[in-house]
Design a protein around this nucleic acid. Structure first.
Lengths: 194, 194
DNA sequence: AATTGTGAATTGATTCACAGCT
DNA sequence: AGCTGTGAATCAATTCACAATT
């Protein structure tokens, strides 16, 4: 199943959840595609890759389709994830300066107390083993990212959501998704300057 | 110029910066492509879209190519960006639980003092106008994201890096890049379960 | 009448293969 | 000899068009 389809299934699922919250029981591919920001044929092609769940002339049952997509994605149970590297930023180096921060409730206590305790790296192997952790969010400086990824993998992590601005080298069976905020900003700035 | 190419140009640029820091003056498409995680033909095709900067038999001048890409991306000067919506999370709702947080220096003071003051939303229009802000990072709960995006656009923001898990409706001239961390995690979890 | 599911057509992106420089 | 630049070929993704179904 293509990666892009998997992404879109996640989006469809979130739209379906919202529909259900609004008490809607049936939806056409046209309407769901609109909500997800894609064309209806694409939605139907995506779904066709793992089954036929619609009723011609009527559409899809929201609850049933949610269940099918959820089953396909394997998102039934809560997954444990760890966060490695807390709170480093550094946009200035990359050409962007965060000049202001805004919030609906600017004076609300930022809930540092309910947040998790931050543990030292030496506690990683025990923690990963005990909690059955298979995925990590890696948000350390570029210079140590590869080394830290190697450790995570050695300790059993199979999936890494990488925020460090480098290309990680990993064994084939390990999956990396990279998110580079500086590049996202750079991309935006390119398309708005014209 | 295709969006995907722009993304890759950003990546090439970062690789070139690292090469320069290491005192390397010339690089072949083969070597640069390796560092960027793409094929060398793709790199050459990407560059061909806006010029011929290489020397056959030799490769590319690192400084010159950096300058060309930087010029093309328009990343010469520091861009002001604002952050709207501070510190909301909520992965549990989406099927993932952050069970642990790790850092190289777990007891370091998280620098809340050097961070920006957080302003109220009512100060947005004045701030945007005064600082010439054209881009915003939007990280508010889904329920208020569309409304807040509308405000930002009305005040002059042209590019939004959206972290809210919804599809924003915006006028054609406004650019939105969405990053959905829950979907990235879901995607990872799909590909590691097999 | 409405809407799905899908083969065919189209569009887009990537890779190959090699001519052309240095 | 080595490496770029690029037309041609391939591969992948999207969209069209419509027959099939309720």
């Amino acid at each position: 199943m293509p990666r892009k389809t998997i992404y879109r299934l996640s989006i469809y699922l979130r739209c379906l959840v919202r529909l259900r919250e609004n008490g809607i029981g049936t939806v056409s591919s046209e309407a769901l595609a609109k909500a997800a920001g894609v064309k209806s044929t694409q939605l139907r092609k995506d779904l066709a890759l793992f089954g036929n769940f619609g009723t011609r002339g009527l559409g899809y049952d929201v609850a049933e389709l949610s269940a099918k997509i959820s089953g396909e994605l394997g998102t039934s149970r809560l997954q444990p994830v760890i966060l490695v590297g807390v709170g480093h930023r550094g946009f200035e180096k990359e050409g962007f300066e965060i000049v202001g921060a805004f919030d609906l409730e600017p004076n609300r206590r930022r809930d540092k107390k309910v947040a998790l305790p931050i543990l030292g790296i030496e506690q990683l192997p025990k923690f990963i083993a005990e909690h059955g952790v298979r995925m990590a969010i890696l948000s350390v400086p570029a210079a140590v990212a590869q080394e830290m990824a190697n450790k995570l993998i050695a300790y059993g992590v199979m999936g890494i959501l990488n925020f460090a601005p480098i290309v990680l080298e990993v064994p084939e069976e390990v999956m990396v998704n990279s998110v580079n905020l500086a590049i996202e900003l750079e991309n935006l700035s390119y398309f708005i300057q014209s």
